[in-house]
Design a protein around this nucleic acid. Structure first.
Lengths: 97, 97
DNA sequence: GGTAGTTACGAATTTCGTAACAATC
DNA sequence: GATTGTTACGAAATTCGTAACTACC
């Protein structure tokens, strides 16, 4: 389970559509579809129901969505916190000019 | 920032030593060293101080360590929760035999 | 000269996008 | 036949490990 796969999963869950999610992620459909298939394979269970109009979350997918959002948010916070700590402390990489 | 990089970071932080962390992760030193360098590059700041005996966390690294552990734990919970939801619901991939 | 991290570089793996396919209305 | 997801497949990018290098006692 990679962060990329989780970003893909959340986008498809929110759009209900691989094509739209792909455009939102600046990606084409096939790789995005593979991300979802890889995730389902790794977890050993389908996450979406394939319906004529697109992708509908299954209960397993709903369960994942909550955690996926938490993880992605926490990743954002982590990056921001480190950058702030770098400013706070002495000598950061980008020279203060 | 990938989950792999975070796992590498936590291992090095806990061991204080790239070599030992690499053995723990079943990896050689160079890729592990590159993971840390990539993370530092992405965040724009060093995370460790290179000391004669190994790697010592900087304040930036301490800040990241907390979040990294949270993220990795949350990933574990996510996987477990989905697998449990799959058992709870109807038709999982692995046939119940 | 031993211990530690890093850089060079070629091989293996992964991941992408285009094209072709399958399924549903 | 239009719309949607998936599979095939070759090209590009990533990542690994061995070997060589650097720095510090």
């Amino acid at each position: 389970m990679s962060i990329t796969h989780l970003q893909s999963f959340v986008a498809v869950a929110e759009e209900g559509h691989v094509g739209r999610a792909a455009r939102r992620l600046h990606l084409t459909q096939p790789p995005l579809s593979r991300h979802i298939l890889a995730l389902e394979d790794e977890l050993g269970t389908p996450l979406f129901e394939r319906v004529p109009r697109g992708m509908r979350l299954l209960p397993t997918g709903e369960a994942l969505l909550h955690h996926a959002r938490l993880i992605l948010a926490e990743v954002e916070v982590a990056a921001r916190t480190v950058r702030e700590a770098a400013r706070g402390s002495g000598a950061p990489k980008p020279p203060p000019a």
